[in-house]
Computed example of a mutant assay.
Amino acid sequence: MKFVLTGGGTGGHLAIAKALLDAITAAGDEAIFIGSTTGQDRMWFGEGSAFEQTHFLETTGVVNRRGIAKLAALWRVARSALEARRIMKRYRPDAVISVGGFSAAPASFAALSLKIPYFIHEQNAVTGRLNRLLRRYARCFFSSYDPESPVKSYPVNRALFETARVRERVETVIFLGGSQGAKAINDFALAVAPALARRGIAIIHQCGERDYERVREAYAAMGIGAELYGFTKELPSLLARSDLAVSRAGASTLWELAANGLPALYIPYPYAAGDHQYYNAMHLAEQGLSRVVREAELRPELLEQMLDDGVEAASRGLRALEGDDAAAAIISAVREAC
C-alpha cells in the first residue's frame, strides 16, 4: 500500500508523521512526505529519511496574518496545492494522512480534489483550524481527546515505551522548552537550580539555540554542572534518564512523557492557538497525573512541593494510560477504511 503523509511546521506534528512512517515501513509498505520549505520539515525529513520521496512546497501559515500578507499566504497554498496534485498523480497513493499544521494544506486540498481517501490525525485537545475545516471530508478523524476517534492512543516513538519505567524517586529533573526553547522555563530552571543542587538532583536542560549562551553562562556562574542542550534529536534517551520534567504542553511532548512514565509540571505556552496547550495538560491533570501552572503564576515553590510529594503514584498512572501500538493501530484503521 502507498501512503502520503503531510503536515508539519513544528516538531509536534512531525513527530506524529515519524511514528506513522515507522509503522508503515514496519508493515512493508511505502510512503512519501509532502511538507513545507518553512518550519522544521526539512530538519526532520531532509536527506537520509526513510520516505521514498520528500517534497517541500512553498507555504507559510495563514492564521494570524492579515491583509496582503494573508492573501499572499493563501496564494502560496493554492499554487502548492497544484504542485501536490502533480506529485500525487505520478505517485498514485492509496491514502493521504494529514498530521495537521500549515504544511498540510496543499496536499490535503490536492487529495480531496483527486478523491484520494483522506485521513486526519489531530494532536491537540483543541482542534486546529485546518483540521476543523476538513474534518467533514475525512474518512477517519484520529484524536486522543475525541471520544469518537477509532484510535484513542497517541502515536509516539516506540523507544519511549521500551525505556519506560516507574519513577520511585527524583534523581534527575529535565527542563523542556520545546524545539525553540522558552525563556520563562529557562528562567525558572535557573531559579530552582540551587535548590536542586542542594538536594543532589541532576539537571538536564534543553533551552533552545537562541538562549543557549545566556543559560550556559548562568549555570557556570552558579557553579552548577547542568547537562545543557540548545536543540537535540536524542530526546528519548534524555527522558529515559529523567525522573521529573518541567515542560511546555505541546501534545507530542505530553504524550511522549506519558508513554515513558515521566511525571511533569506543565507550563503551557500562553499564546498557543485556542490555548490548546493548557487543555492538553489539563487532560492529564484532571486524572491526577500531572500538574499545570500558568506561566504568569510560576513559582519555584511549586517544583519543590512536587519533589516533597513524590512522583511514584503519577508515574504508575501514566504507565497504565498509554498503549504502545497507536501508530500501527492508526495505519490498520486506514487500511480498513480504504
Results as ranks from 00 to 15, higher is better:
Y219A: 02
L239W: 14
C207W: 01
G208V: 09
Y229C: 05
Y212F: 15
R216Q: 12
Y212W: 12
L239G: 09
L238S: 07
G230K: 00
L228C: 01
R216W: 06
D211G: 08
K233F: 12
G223E: 04
F231L: 08
A218V: 04
A221N: 08
G223P: 02
A218E: 05
V215H: 00
E227G: 03
E234H: 14
K233C: 12
R216G: 04
C207M: 07
L228E: 01
G208M: 07
L228D: 00
C207Y: 04
D211L: 06
L228T: 00
V215N: 00
E217W: 12
A218Q: 06
E227L: 10
A218P: 01
L228M: 02
K233N: 15
C207S: 07
A226Y: 02
L235F: 13
E209G: 10
C207H: 04
A220N: 09
E213S: 14
R210L: 14
G225R: 15
A221D: 06
V215Q: 00
P236D: 07
G230Q: 02
L239K: 09
F231M: 07
R216M: 10
E209T: 13
V215S: 01
T232M: 07
K233M: 14
G230C: 03
E234F: 11
Y219H: 04
Y219K: 02
V215M: 03
G208C: 12
Y229W: 06
E234A: 13
V215W: 00
A226T: 02
P236C: 08
R210D: 14
R214I: 10
A218K: 04
C207V: 09
F231P: 01
L235P: 01
Y219Q: 01
T232A: 04
A226G: 06
Y229L: 07
E213Q: 15
E209V: 13
P236N: 09
G223C: 05
I224Y: 03
L235Y: 09
P236F: 07
M222C: 06
V215I: 09
L235T: 12
G223S: 04
L238H: 07
R216I: 04
Y219R: 02
A220C: 05
F231K: 04
A218M: 08
L228Q: 01
G230P: 00
G225Y: 08
A220T: 10
G225W: 05
P236G: 08
E227K: 13
F231Y: 12
T232Q: 06
E213C: 13
R214V: 11
P236W: 06
A226F: 01
L239Q: 11
E217H: 14
L228A: 03
G230R: 00
R210K: 14
L238D: 05
A226N: 03
T232V: 06
F231S: 03
A221R: 10
Y219I: 01
L238K: 09
M222P: 05
E234G: 12
K233H: 14
D211W: 05
G208S: 09
